[in-house]
């Protein structure tokens, strides 16, 4: 496990697509002594690495294909209600593709 640094905390936040203030970074950094101690405790449990990881409480998932059931299309009024920038029958979305975008216009 890598050693925590304030840069790693910022990188983790960046991976999750948000920024942290320096106070927030400090708070998280100070929590990591406890995190390391408890992770260390988990590794010390007898037999912990002799079992398979448990991803769900029990295995009973369904994998069959769902039946094709025709659905009614979304009503225009309901879709428009979801935006506070609706004009007539259209919704104005914020401009998210611009000159610095990594998506081709």
């Amino acid at each position: 496990m890598i050693k925590i640094t304030k840069n790693i905390i910022r990188q983790c936040a960046k991976n999750m697509m948000f920024d942290l203030t320096s106070e927030e970074v400090d708070t998280i950094f100070n929590e990591f002594d406890t995190v390391y101690a408890q992770v260390g405790f988990l590794s010390s449990i007898k037999g912990v690495d002799e079992v398979e990881p448990m991803t769900f409480p029990y295995k009973e998932h369904q994998h069959k294909l769902a039946d094709d059931i025709p659905l009614k299309p979304l009503k225009r009024a309901l879709a428009l209600k979801n935006s506070n920038t609706a004009f007539g029958n259209q919704i104005k979305l914020p401009k998210v593709i611009g000159v610095n975008s990594d998506v081709d216009e």
Partner: peptide
């Protein structure tokens, strides 16, 4: 929430 996300991401 951000704190929990950072720990999850780590």
């Amino acid at each position: 929430i951000k704190r929990r996300f950072v720990i999850g991401s780590f």
